[in-house]
Design a binder for these strands. Structure first.
Length: 570
RNA sequence: CGGGGUGUGGCGUAGCCUGGUAACGCACGCGCUUUGGGAGCGCGAGAUCGUCGGUUCAAAUCCGACCGCCCCGACCA
């Protein structure tokens, strides 16, 4: 590909809106352009790189028996009403009517369509198991996109789906995907950590997320340094400290002016934060007020809390008037004397005697509050966040918290979708059985960005050979002084074309500085420089983009490499 | 949705406070020179100053509303 003809432009200055290195570099090097918030065009270079990512995924999913197909982006809303998600999912799903007034949606994912296909196609256990997958556009109207391609609203995802006759089959499909993902991310040059994860709106019984550590990450990972525990903080369980012993003492009210936070309260009373009870208030999607009680030295984990109360449509922080309506006082709140609220108490707080809790009166707290005696919890469950340094649930070593970006996930879905759509087959014994599904996603654009996050330097992108849009970047310098430069460069370009290994050829009439800087910015694994100097030295200068190592090779050698090797070694 | 910021040629910005009809660098076109690290000189094209409304003799500049984009939070498969 001649750079003079390529539909792209490199930018000398960093675009003002880009903060993450991947965002900055992909814009500057002309791989992507933004169309709107969370909506991007892939330019030819970006599209080529994306297709290479896609091909790696395709090969590995094919290898575990996946069959590629293509499902639509526009779905009849009926299907989503059948599964119940039409009601369950909020405004992140785009809904509209077609000209006939029929409700339609834009696909956020494709479980419904797969279940519908199974309903029509699978009649017998003999047809299973099956793994199908596709690369297709998803639209999720995120409340806030960010970080360039990291979190967008429209994106292409590889999503595969397993359909099995029983749990053992699902376990096998799940493991196959787990292993395929490990191979995929390794080939993409990504160091991933598989962490246990929340199942979210997908339902189901088990899920893992493949995470790449990154300071811009949106997820917090709870990791044991010895490697025997890794979980998303949303679900991470830790060994909690032993509650102090002590017989319940009589409850008493104390004046605690101006102590609306645990820190100020503990300081005012001269007690540890672990002797206090923290109340946090939430409202479920179906309108229930939930009062969460944790010990003052812990924070509420909203995912765990939402799961504990089986909230429909998740939970959100409650408004002040909603809290007051239940007879509680924000800043001085506790369930003592409260009404019309579900009370969820963390298991540790439930076992800790004589806590300081709010008196539901501005400026007052209660000493010696005891869960069970002074108020009745509706639910006792683990609803706290793992903290840095908490003991590993497996080995007891101090846990670390790190930020990560999710590059892929795998879910055991179970039979929720096949039951909801009544997709069933006849088993060997003649009974009608609903198959068990799994769902497995990888976002292409996000992976592209994360690869750049992991593979760049101060000069630009450094593509791993497996995903580089072109294997080499040919630069012709000083052509005006030496006609053999152009002749040689043209011939090398043609040799590569003829071999079906097209390279990027900078045939522009630009200064050496511009060409060399662009070559480094664009990030092809190998830079081939042809110039009067290189010809005098015996041929072509071959530079390894990653290491910076240079060597002069004869023209014949370089031609041979272009014909054969995917990557021309320095 | 809450908080903060921002919007001036393709990109990065100045000008706004103190109103007088748009500037600089890069990029772009043409010519000459130059050619191993973002070249030089000359000529040139390119902007409804986010939108609408208001104040004023006069608005990029002051006021209001709205919109877009970015960051933090909420949210998130």
């Amino acid at each position: 590909m001649r750079l003079s003809q390529l539909f792209f432009a490199s930018l000398r200055d960093d675009p003002a809106e880009a903060e993450m290195p991947s965002h900055r570099l992909l814009l500057r090097a002309g791989y992507v352009r933004q169309l709107g918030s969370g909506i991007y065009s892939l330019l030819p270079l970006g599209y080529r790189a994306t297709k290479r990512v896609e091909q790696v995924i395709r090969e590995e999913i094919d290898r575990i028996g996946g069959q590629e197909l293509l499902m639509p982006v526009v779905h009849p809303a009926e299907l989503w009403k059948e599964s119940g998600r039409y009601q369950k999912i909020g405004p992140e799903m785009v809904r509209f009517e077609d000209r006939g007034g029929r409700d339609m949606v834009l696909a956020m994912t494709h479980e419904e369509v797969v279940a519908d296909l199974v309903r029509g196609l699978v009649q017998s256990y003999r047809q299973l198991p099956v793994i199908v997958y596709h690369f297709q556009t998803k639209f999720r109207d995120e409340p806030r996109s960010r970080g360039g391609l990291i979190r967008v609203r429209e994106f292409t995802m590889k999503d595969s789906y397993s359909i099995d006759v029983d749990e053992a089959g699902l376990d096998r499909s799940y493991r196959l995907h787990y292993e395929a993902y490990e191979r995929i991310f390794k080939r993409l040059g990504l160091d991933t950590i598989a962490v246990g994860a929340d199942v979210g709106i997908m339902g189901g019984s088990e899920a893992h997320e493949f995470m790449v550590l990154n300071d811009y990450g949106e997820d917090t990972l709870v990791l044991c340094p010895s490697g025997d525990y890794a979980a998303n903080q949303q679900i991470a369980a830790v060994r909690k400290p032993e509650p102090p012993k002590g017989a319940p003492l009589p409850i008493e009210e104390v004046a605690t002016p101006g102590t609306t936070t645990i820190a100020t309260l503990a300081a005012f009373l001269g007690v540890g934060e672990d002797r206090t009870a923290k109340a946090a208030f939430f409202v479920t999607g179906d309108g229930r007020l939930v009062t969460a009680i944790v010990r003052g030295d812990f924070d509420v984990n909203e995912t765990k809390l939402s799961n504990a109360v089986k909230a429909i449509g998740g939970i959100r922080p409650a408004q002040v008037d909603e809290i007051k309506a239940a007879g509680m006082e924000p800043g001085y709140g506790s369930p003592v004397g409260a009404r019309n609220t579900a009370v969820v108490v963390d298991d540790l707080a439930a076992k800790s005697p004589n806590l300081v809790a709010g008196a539901n009166k501005v400026g007052f707290h209660l000493r010696n509050v005891n869960v069970g005696r002074d108020f009745k919890p509706d639910i006792v469950a683990d609803i706290t966040n793992a903290r840095e340094g908490d003991p590993c649930p497996t080995c007891g070593k101090p846990l670390e918290l790190k930020k990560g970006i999710e590059v892929g996930n795998i879910f055991k879905l179970g039979t929720d979708f096949t039951v909801a759509l009544d997709a069933a087959f006849l088993a060997e014994d003649g009974t009608r059985v609903h198959p068990i599904m799994g769902s497995y996603g990888i976002g292409l654009g996000r992976n592209l960005a994360v690869i750049v996050e992991a593979h760049h330097d101060d000069k630009g992108i450094v593509w791993p050979a497996e995903v580089a849009p072109y294997p080499a970047h040919l630069v012709a310098l000083g052509a005006a002084r030496e006609p053999r430069v152009t002749e040689t460069a043209e011939r090398l370009h043609q040799v590569a074309l003829d071999a079906g290994r097209e390279i990027l050829y900078d045939d522009r009439d630009e200064s050496p500085g511009v060409k060399l800087t662009d070559a480094e910015l664009l990030g092809m694994p190998t830079i081939l420089t042809v110039s009067p100097r290189s010809l005098a030295a015996g041929g072509v200068e071959v530079t390894d983009r990653a290491t910076g190592e240079r060597a002069t090779r004869s023209i014949d050698e370089v031609e041979a490499l272009l014909r054969g090797a995917e990557r021309v070694p320095a």
